[in-house]
Design a protein around this nucleic acid. Sequence first.
DNA 1: CCACGGATCAGCT
DNA 2: GCTGATCCGTGGA
Length: 188
Amino acid sequence: MVPERELFAGKAVRAARRLIGMELVHRGQRVRIVETEAYVGPHDLACHASKGRTARTEVLWRGPGLAYVYLIYGMYNCLNVVTGPEGFASAVLIRAAEPLSPGLGDLSGPGKLCRALGIDRSFNGIDLCDPGAALHLELGPRRRVRIASGPRINVDYARHWAHKDYRFMEAGSPFGSRPRLPLRSRRT
DNA sequence: CCACGGATCAGCT
DNA sequence: GCTGATCCGTGGA
């Protein structure tokens, strides 16, 4: 079952927490999300929306539940879920997942996850809440997860925004990216 | 037109 | 811990 779009229509931090434990499905391959980062809006210097609306980032303004896929360092793709009320540009980066289908290999990083699932920029704008979409989300089995938080990775340029605890990970998961998060931990 | 830097990763030290 | 690979998006001239 796909998640309600409303789950992503609020603040990015809330969506980032809720995405932990959800599953991504592409061509019959299935993964379980264990790590996310929130990019909370145009005022967040680490959020691509802070640079203004461009052809690349336009999907961030189109509404919650859509995929924002961009190329980083010339060689890796990163998958995000657009969040917030329509017109408030924010998103959640999917950083790592646990493989549920055989043969997927290591998904412990945003670039690796996209490479393993074959996600590239042609998926930009796809509706992740549409069960018929080539790539979509599904609610996993309902289960309580402990979530640890810490600062986002590689956003040192974002001044005080770099220190905010906008990175979330299933506590103790061996499938997250490094560095691990022994930080704050709380049940949701 | 051109220069610069990045929401990464693998491979090394 | 550090570095290079690799190329698009952006901003300035």
